[in-house]
Design a protein around this nucleic acid. Structure first.
Lengths: 180, 180
DNA sequence: TCAGGTTCTGACCGATCGGTCAGGCATGAT
DNA sequence: ATCATGCCTGACCGATCGGTCAGAACCTGA
């Protein structure tokens, strides 16, 4: 049993803090307190604050790279299913790191004005799941809501009308559990 | 024609800056430079930096509140379609504000280590759309990728196995354009 | 016992942050 | 002419940030 490395403790503490308050919202002091060492000790093990983040995300990025490379040798249909299953697995395996990327949101949403947004989004979600509300239905609803916002976020090249039609059609497809 | 109000210019400039660098990544100085006034002028018109953000997002939040209230008086099926269409319209109408919420990401992803992530995500997306690549297919693929990550982000209550099955099934539903 | 490397600390640095304050400068009513 | 009010500025504040540095503490092998 090797000694518990301070370096690993730093990575673990940083992952928790980044996931909770985001990268910009977390200071080296915060991490040092959780680890139980000085701020200077962090910068002895890592060149900078960003170096902590990049080393933390390196395994996830490497797996994403492997997945993308694996798709290149497949036909269209096989590539599609491999992309879906590979991405889902990867995302689930690196949930913590995903939270780091999305982690700056909670800092904003903890303001009382935005707490209401979370509540109303939940009511939207209930409308989408319908009265049944199986776990799979909840996942589908969440996927639609978050995916729609994300599409609007970085699909600036499409017109509103095109986006609207495509989004509504895609959402309808997700939310009809009768399709096999 | 009323005078172009400094207050409105501040809101517009803040929206652009927040969308580009995120809330935490934007300083009052940045906004003041773009407006062409002093930092103190911002704090004359608004109580604080956060007050700029909340006032900027107030219309979007109000519309979300109206949408949620409208759903309460509908049956399950009507509520579902109203939720989809209403949310899509709302998201498209307030794209800028959505970018503010998601805006802290670019600050991270501009690091060279994460630039590769964007490239590989695009290759995943191409695998999902298949060789056709219609705009609707691209929207569906983006919705799946971003939605999956978001589900993993805030569905900590479900087990990995449940999430995996539900996500793959939902993704398959979105990506089969033969369903009506 | 000494030397040398690793690990870590406390003090400190310059920069930047959000925010405050006293006062200047218009304009318009009295 | 005077006063009040709205709008705005430059200087400044305390706090916090990421990062540096000299040296202490500790272990290890010679």
């Amino acid at each position: 049993m090797v000694r518990s490395n301070t370096r690993d403790e730093i990575l673990a503490a940083a992952a928790r803090q980044f996931a909770r308050a985001g990268f910009k919202g977390t200071s080296l002091h915060d991490i040092a307190v959780e680890v139980g060492c000085s701020k200077a000790a962090l910068l002895y093990h890592f060149d900078s604050k960003e170096a902590i983040l990049t080393e933390m995300c390196a395994p996830a990025i490497a797996e994403l790279r492997e997945l993308a490379a694996r798709l290149a040798g497949l036909g269209p249909h096989a590539a599609r299913t491999a992309a879906i299953e590979g991405f889902v697995d990867l995302v689930l395996r690196y949930r913590k790191e995903i939270q780091v990327i999305y982690g700056d949101l909670p800092g904003l949403l903890q303001q009382p004005e935005f707490l209401e947004v979370h509540l109303m989004t939940q009511r939207l979600q209930e409308a989408l799941t319908g009265p049944s509300g199986s776990p799979a239905a909840h996942v589908a609803a969440k996927l639609v809501l978050a995916g729609t916002a994300a599409v609007a976020f970085d699909c600036i090249d499409y017109s509103d009308d095109d986006l609207r039609a495509a989004l509504i059609a895609a959402a309808a497809r997700v939310l009809t559990p009768e399709a096999s």
